[in-house]
Amino acid sequence: MKIGLLFPGQGSQFIGMGKDFYENSNKAKEMFEEASDAIKVDFKKLMFEENEDINKTEFTQPAILLFSAIAYELFKENIDFEYSYSLGHSLGEFSALYSAGALNLSEAIKLVHNRGKLMNEAFKDKVGSMMVVLGLDDEVVEEVCKNSNLQVWPANYNSDGQIVIAGIKEDLEKLEPLLKEKGAKRVMLLNMSVASHCPLLESATKPLRELLEEYLKDEFLDVVSNVTAKKYNTKKEALELLPIQLTKPVLYKQSIKNYEDEVEKFVEFGGKVLMGINRKITKKKTIPIVDMKSLEKAISEVK
């Protein structure tokens, strides 16, 4: 079966993620150890025990990537499937690069850990956040942001009627009544201190490019870019796309629509968030893998 590989981004983390894999798979244990060695962080403690670090972006990003990578490796070692492309949402694009062979696990963990640090550094003197808006057309949200004279931008095009805005937290709060006046069904500020995929992260793009130059392989399997909603498979392309991915909106629904005809099903590794979004975009089924039971189910559905 030809499948599209999907990888979720920040916001999909939870305490206990990966624990079932760890307790039932030697491969998972090895990957936990490799990730822990890579950045000198105890990933078992980070992902299994209540703590504040799990929601800090420099730790959230490698934790989610590790969870996704384990789900992918356990799936891959148990079944033969025809790879079509990998697609990640925001941070998930780096998990997708791992699955495509652009990075090994240690490199990917180091990369996203440092990416998180760079994003935090960009917000050391300001408070950012993100806000989900339901029930408005993209064009309406874009127009409200543009005409507001506030530091706010469309950041994630998730599905028709669901868009996420990024910007200065205070400005997002001011934008909320303007969106409701336009008929938004719901406007909800997210619990985040960094505004992803907007110009406020410009300072992080150059140092991220330097890290990518160090870690990326020259060629890899097809990955769909968040920036263009098109496939790429070379280091040269990645060096242009991944730094500006920090400052440009995630074209998720456009990516799914562009390539849904190439696959029979989607498999989401390490989450269920994209499965929920996909129900509003495509008729193609999305199968999530979050533990051993769902892994077995996914394997049986793809055979």
Results as ranks from 00 to 15, higher is better:
residue 152 V to A: 05
residue 161 G to M: 07
residue 63 A to H: 02
residue 171 D to K: 05
residue 182 K to L: 10
residue 34 E to M: 04
residue 222 D to M: 10
residue 201 L to D: 10
residue 69 A to P: 02
residue 183 G to A: 15
residue 123 F to V: 07
residue 138 D to T: 14
residue 74 L to T: 12
residue 192 M to H: 06
residue 158 N to Q: 06
residue 252 Y to D: 04
residue 143 E to C: 06
residue 229 A to S: 13
residue 113 H to Y: 15
residue 85 Y to H: 15
residue 172 L to N: 01
residue 136 L to H: 07
residue 130 M to D: 03
residue 245 Q to M: 03
residue 7 F to P: 04
residue 166 A to T: 04
residue 235 K to Y: 05
residue 175 L to M: 13
residue 65 L to K: 04
residue 6 L to Y: 10
residue 292 M to C: 12
residue 278 N to D: 02
residue 240 E to Q: 13
residue 104 N to I: 01
residue 301 E to H: 01
residue 90 S to C: 03
residue 167 G to A: 06
residue 178 L to H: 08
residue 212 L to T: 04
residue 41 V to M: 00
residue 212 L to H: 05
residue 235 K to I: 13
residue 138 D to R: 13
residue 36 S to L: 02
residue 159 S to F: 12
residue 216 L to K: 05
residue 268 E to N: 04
residue 30 E to C: 05
residue 67 F to V: 03
residue 65 L to N: 02
residue 141 V to D: 05
residue 98 Y to H: 09
residue 270 G to D: 04
residue 297 K to L: 11
residue 278 N to P: 00
residue 150 L to K: 05
residue 181 E to R: 13
residue 247 T to K: 02
residue 133 V to I: 14
residue 97 L to H: 12
residue 292 M to K: 15
residue 287 I to W: 15
residue 253 K to I: 00
residue 25 S to G: 14
residue 38 A to W: 06
residue 74 L to G: 09
residue 252 Y to E: 09
residue 40 K to C: 09
residue 51 N to D: 02
residue 229 A to F: 07
residue 262 E to P: 04
residue 255 S to R: 02
residue 300 S to P: 06
residue 124 K to A: 06
residue 10 Q to I: 14
residue 12 S to L: 12
residue 226 N to R: 07
residue 202 E to L: 10
residue 135 G to N: 06
residue 196 S to A: 09
residue 251 L to S: 02
residue 75 F to E: 08
residue 286 T to V: 10
residue 4 G to S: 06
residue 49 E to Q: 11
residue 223 V to Y: 12
residue 81 F to M: 09
residue 206 K to I: 08
residue 211 L to W: 09
residue 138 D to F: 15
residue 207 P to V: 06
residue 300 S to E: 15
residue 74 L to D: 11
residue 201 L to N: 12
residue 17 M to R: 08
residue 242 L to M: 08
residue 81 F to R: 05
residue 185 K to C: 14
residue 110 K to R: 10
residue 45 K to N: 05
residue 253 K to D: 01
residue 41 V to L: 00
residue 146 K to M: 03
residue 148 S to H: 07
residue 177 P to Y: 11
